[in-house]
């Protein structure tokens, strides 16, 4: 059971959260102008990272907010969580 640091509420256990998939997948600003390939890429293609992974979580049984997290998929350890729209935290101290 992971311990997740909601940027709004602090550390809470995993059952309070819903996983939201890979982070920083931006919806094309003008979908009509996107090529089939670019659109399919946006819809279907996700990384399957072994290592550091930027991902979305939602504190669904808490404040309800989405936020982003950096997690090492090999160890399940979080290197940090940050608000939507904010840049990932620097990794120097890890």
């Amino acid at each position: 059971m992971l311990l997740i640091d909601c940027p709004y509420c602090g550390e809470r256990p995993e059952p309070e959260f819903a996983y939201g998939g890979q982070a920083h997948v931006a919806r094309p600003a003008r979908p009509a102008e996107a090529s089939d390939e670019a659109w399919a890429d946006y819809l279907y293609f996700r990384r399957n990272t072994r290592g550091l992974h930027a991902e979305r979580w939602r504190h669904i049984r808490g404040c309800g907010r989405f936020f982003n997290a950096l997690r090492d998929t090999r160890t399940d350890h979080f290197l940090g969580t940050y608000k939507i729209g904010a840049p990932p935290p620097p990794l120097a101290d890890t």
Partner: peptide, 8 residues
Amino acid sequence: FGYFPHNA
């Protein structure tokens, strides 16, 4: 009987 991530 079980050790789970993040010291649970």
